[in-house]
Write a protein that binds this DNA or RNA. Structure first.
Length: 325
DNA sequence: CGCCTTTGACCAGCGC
DNA sequence: GCGCTGGTCAAAGGCG
């Protein structure tokens, strides 16, 4: 879990379906070559605090609540999109890959923590567990093989759908599936991605479900690998943490994670998100000289022949990058 | 012992 | 209605 190794490059992509997929993307070098950091504009505290820039958004930004959903909404024009903005299922019903989405909930204009602290959110979580618990109890009660008891007593009420938490997906080029983000996660499930030729986690085409281990924190995340490029890990966060990163107890990494002012890792980062804090402005039009060559390399790696999961997102992104060359 | 992962099963939603 | 799929649960087991 924590012994994972980072690759030389990380690419961070934030997707939104309505906007041809990508709302932000960044690629940045790993600590093996710290020099590029000096060539890449860092995110200033001011930018961090007063303006949402999807191109500079990171796991940490999101997890730490630095990203205001209101700003996110404005940036993405999510006001007209209140449902899941990306579906992994194409028109034929075939899955082309995992879910990558930035989802605006119906209440997206709320503050970053509102979705967490709101009663609706809690109710949603409770409802979820409660519902399942009820069913579980029924199941437990029918160990004698009485199948009917499984499905009786279905309260058929609740016509209204439970609002989903806002979701944000990140694409990260990494060899490890579960990227360290400063929080503690508990895996609660795993599913083989449909149509996956490799239904086993070892081969990366499984979707893992994690839940924040902190009590009262309903944040979940899904981790899966891209069909097209197994080196790309797609991490989808749902909800926002209502607590500080527990990584504080595990070294200075959390200090940097929790501190948006942090812009230069002393002695080299040990957490991916420390690097994510350094996300460069890849949208830097006209001045490609500031782009690290690795960026382009990574982008091209993202462009894979078999359009599936990323077909809606990667090509436009890659094209844009190529046009900048 | 506590925390975590694994894993099979279940349920709801959705498309046909 | 049926089947598929995503999401979740919880027992069992592993690990430090």
């Amino acid at each position: 879990m924590s012994d994972h190794r980072a690759r030389d490059l990380y690419s961070l992509n934030i997707y939104h379906e309505d906007q041809s997929g990508i709302i932000g993307t960044s690629t940045f070098p790993m600590s093996t070559d710290p020099s590029p950091f000096h060539q890449i504009p860092s995110v200033t505290a001011n930018e961090y605090q007063h303006g949402f820039d999807p191109m500079n958004m990171s796991f940490t930004d999101y997890l730490q609540g630095s990203v205001d959903y209101g700003a996110l909404e404005r940036a993405l024009d999510l006001s007209r999109s209140s449902s899941e903005v990306f579906s992994s299922i194409d028109g034929t019903g075939q899955n082309t890959g995992g879910a990558i989405e930035t989802v605006g909930s119906g209440d997206i204009s709320a503050t970053p923590n509102s979705s967490i602290s709101s009663s609706s959110t809690e109710a949603a979580g409770e409802e979820d567990s409660g519902k399942s618990k009820k069913n579980r109890q029924q199941k437990a009660g029918c160990e004698d093989g009485n199948e009917m008891s499984k499905k009786v007593n279905k309260p058929k009420k609740k016509p209204e759908k439970r609002p989903r938490e806002p979701r944000v997906a990140f694409m990260t080029e990494s060899e490890v599936d579960h990227l360290e983000d400063g929080y503690r996660w508990r895996k609660y499930g795993q599913k083989a991605v449909k149509n996956s030729p490799y239904p086993r986690p070892l081969f990366g085409h499984c979707r893992s479900y994690y839940r924040c281990t902190s009590q009262k924190c309903t944040v979940k995340k899904r981790v899966e690998r891209s069909f097209q490029n197994p080196s790309i890990v797609i991490t989808t966060y749902e909800g926002q943490h209502n607590h500080h990163s527990p990584a504080t107890l595990r070294g200075n990494a959390s200090r940097m994670l929790a501190n948006p002012m942090f812009t230069s890792p002393p002695g080299g980062p040990s957490f991916h998100q420390e690097l994510l804090m350094q996300v460069p402005r890849t949208s830097n039009q006209g001045d490609t000289s500031t782009m690290h060559p690795h960026n382009l390399t990574t982008i091209q790696q993202l462009q894979l022949p078999d359009y599936g999961l990323l077909q809606d997102m990667v090509p436009p992104f890659a094209h844009r990058q190529q046009q900048q060359q």
